[in-house]
Amino acid sequence: GSVKTGDFAKKCPDWFIQAGIQEHSTATAAGAASTAGVVSLWADFGVFGLSETYNQQRLNDINSANLKTVLTHVGLDVGEDGKTHQAIDYVGLLRNTFGWKLVVPGDPNQTDRATRWALGEAGCVCIAMGRSKLGVLADEQGDPLFGGDYRFRYGEAVLVRPGKDGAIFALGAMTERAVKARDILREKHGLEVSVYCVSSPLAPDDGALREAAATGRILTCEDHSVNSGMGSILAARMTELGLSASFRAVGVHTYGESGSSTDVIAAMGLDEISLAKAFESLPGK
């Protein structure tokens, strides 16, 4: 029930295997099955599907598996389950591998498109999402950002809002809060800040980075360890590209508390008010 595979099991019972609480053997078996010509998908909580089984997932990479791992309850969004269940290292762990692709969708529509892409993509793919239901991201005209004929493209940082006074790169579900922070900055200071939804943190979008650097200020935000997540990847890539801008990465800097997702996010300084203040701390051009 927690990872929402129940409906699939009812409709396709012959295609569903309930492996129980044995994550290591499940990662091994699912990876092995994927090398035998089937589309193998495994769903589990982030801490169990990757943190707990890192060596098995590493071996799936080494063995050129074709496994699709769907992680739920990642980041701080696991809420009341507390710090032992907060998967705040999944970007960093997959960053250590050479073949895994990681997708962290920004809303339900992008999740749908990314899942369709992943099932037809060769190699190991991880789709990571939180626990809470997300709102639908909309463009400035109010239309669904990832609706219509949108097709997921791995490595693309999607421009959610344009701006000339700075840029915010938000990892997946943090995009909605980044848009709200942008609204605060516009109302409070008259700043026009661009917002990018980053769903492929392991594959930086060079074009988006160049556009953002031209504004002079860049903030990255993620409910992932700030030491090994998206912010560190984008900062390294900017250095490789010779880009210069005031830069600050905000993310998880200590183990989170137990509580509602909203409260835990705010306590970590990742709510929209805190994000706006973090951007204000960046020196301008």
Rank of each mutant, 00 (worst) to 15 (best):
F16W: 15
G216H: 07
V78D: 03
V198Y: 04
C124W: 01
V195L: 04
S246L: 03
R58T: 02
C124S: 15
E23I: 11
S261I: 01
L145I: 06
S51T: 12
F169E: 11
H253C: 05
A208D: 04
G269V: 02
E240M: 10
D112A: 11
R237P: 04
D7S: 12
E140Q: 14
W100T: 14
R113C: 06
D205C: 08
S40G: 14
D14N: 14
G49L: 09
A235S: 12
I218F: 02
V158R: 13
G106Q: 09
K11N: 13
A235R: 12
D44N: 14
A43H: 08
G6I: 05
A170N: 13
D89T: 12
A203G: 00
F279D: 06
F279Y: 08
T35I: 13
S25G: 08
V125L: 11
S132G: 01
D14M: 08
C197K: 08
P105S: 11
A181K: 13
G82I: 05
S40Y: 15
A245D: 07
A178Y: 11
F8M: 10
K101R: 15
V70D: 02
P105C: 11
C126Q: 10
A178L: 12
F247R: 05
T111S: 14
A214R: 14
D77G: 02
D81R: 02
Y90G: 00
G284H: 10
G79Y: 01
P283I: 05
G79F: 01
P105D: 12
T72I: 06
E52A: 11
M230F: 01
L145W: 03
E23G: 12
S225N: 12
L185S: 10
S51P: 00
A178H: 13
K133T: 09
